[in-house]
């Protein structure tokens, strides 16, 4: 019988740790002007990215992120055994249409804004299990495709709720391999869906905070660690409100994230009133990881990082039917070089 790589209630700990040999981030103009600007591999001058619809633009950004990530690792499409990708659009079309161009075995996944980490966890498991030599995880989102699908037409004049978040226009991709140098994925904790009865789709941070807390606690317990064992705990897109709520909930459980926790949603943009509670979307942690954290891990500036991406698993239909918002959070821990 195979020796199990499971530890505790929810965590996989990889014996042969997959290496993140490269990562790439592509974004739109607004993100390019933000604090992460210099870290992006490609910044489009407009949100259409040379296409004639925002959906195509998002798909193009996702493809660019994968292609640039592969090029940085001097790999071609044929070197990749699996591509995990997902986005926020109905039927994850941005990813499917990207896969059409790439000719890589394609596994579409949906975890809303947790998609990138879900993909990295699955890719890591396949690589660590010997089923793949190289696998790519990618995720994308686009402010305008999300607005028109989840909210109002983009030219409709209304005030955004102060609790709402701004969907990132951008895509990130990470290439995992069973050899090479780079940051290594140590473990993967898949989350369980949490629903604490938040109904307002303009307050996703609050809806997702319990999922973040649950997965973080499980991970720490499974690994017998505390937050101080990490240089950085990076959440996906809790935003300002979600982060505050999550830290409050954790304090009640005796876990103090002070000085360790950062939220991707607060790193992408200058926090102007327009951004409200912060950035969000599949592209949020995907770009923050590829444009910033991966580089700091590669440079040895960070030794051990926990990435926890949260996703709100609602749709406009379920919201109109007054359903509460179920949320999930997935975590991977990554070791620096």
């Amino acid at each position: 019988m195979l020796e199990s790589m499971r530890r505790g209630s929810s965590t996989c700990v990889f014996r042969e740790m997959p290496v993140i040999v490269s990562a790439a981030a592509v974004c739109g103009p607004k993100e390019g002007k933000g604090p992460l600007g210099p870290g992006f591999d490609l910044i489009y001058k407009d949100t259409l990215a040379g296409e004639n619809s925002w959906e195509k633009a998002e798909s193009r950004m996702a493809r660019q992120a994968v292609e640039i990530a592969l090029a940085k690792a001097s790999l071609s499409n044929n070197d990749v055994d699996f591509l995990f990708a997902g986005d926020l659009l109905n039927q994850i079309t941005a990813s499917g249409f990207m896969g059409r161009e790439l000719n890589i075995p394609f596994l579409g996944i949906y975890g809303a804004c947790s998609t990138m980490i879900e993909g990295m966890g699955l890719a890591a498991a396949l690589v660590a299990g010997g089923f793949a030599r190289r696998a790519v995880a990618a995720a994308s989102s686009h402010h305008d495709t999300a607005e028109r699908q989840y909210r109002y037409p983009t030219e409709f004049g209304y005030q955004r709720a102060p609790t709402s978040q701004w969907t990132v226009t951008g895509a990130g991709a990470a290439v995992l391999a069973n050899e090479g140098s780079g940051p290594r994925i140590e473990s993967f904790t898949a989350g369980r869906i949490q629903d604490y009865g938040i109904i307002d789709p303009n307050d996703m941070g609050s809806a997702m905070a319990p999922a973040f807390v649950d997965t973080l606690c499980r991970h720490l317990e499974d690994m017998s660690r505390g937050p101080q064992d990490y240089d950085l705990v990076l959440s996906g897109d809790l935003g300002r409100i979600g982060s505050t709520v999550a830290r409050h909930l954790l304090k009640e459980k005796g876990i103090d994230l002070t000085g360790v926790h950062e939220d991707s949603g607060l790193l992408v943009y200058e926090m102007t009133p327009e951004i409200c509670s912060g950035a969000s979307g599949c592209g949020c942690i995907a770009t923050v990881f590829a444009a910033k954290v991966w580089k700091e891990l590669s440079a040895g500036k960070l030794k051990r990082v926990l990435l926890i991406a949260t996703g709100a698993l609602h749709s406009p239909t379920t919201c109109q039917q007054n359903e509460s918002i179920p949320s999930v959070a997935h975590a991977v821990s990554v070791l620096g070089v």
Binding site: Y196, G197, I198, I241, T244, V245, H248
Partner: peptide
């Protein structure tokens, strides 16, 4: 995984304080 009605109410109250 799915909070009871009372837990949900308590959580909604808590969250409101952070808005």
């Amino acid at each position: 995984a799915k909070a009871t009605v009372r837990e949900a109410e308590a959580y909604n109250m808590l969250v409101k304080g952070f808005h």
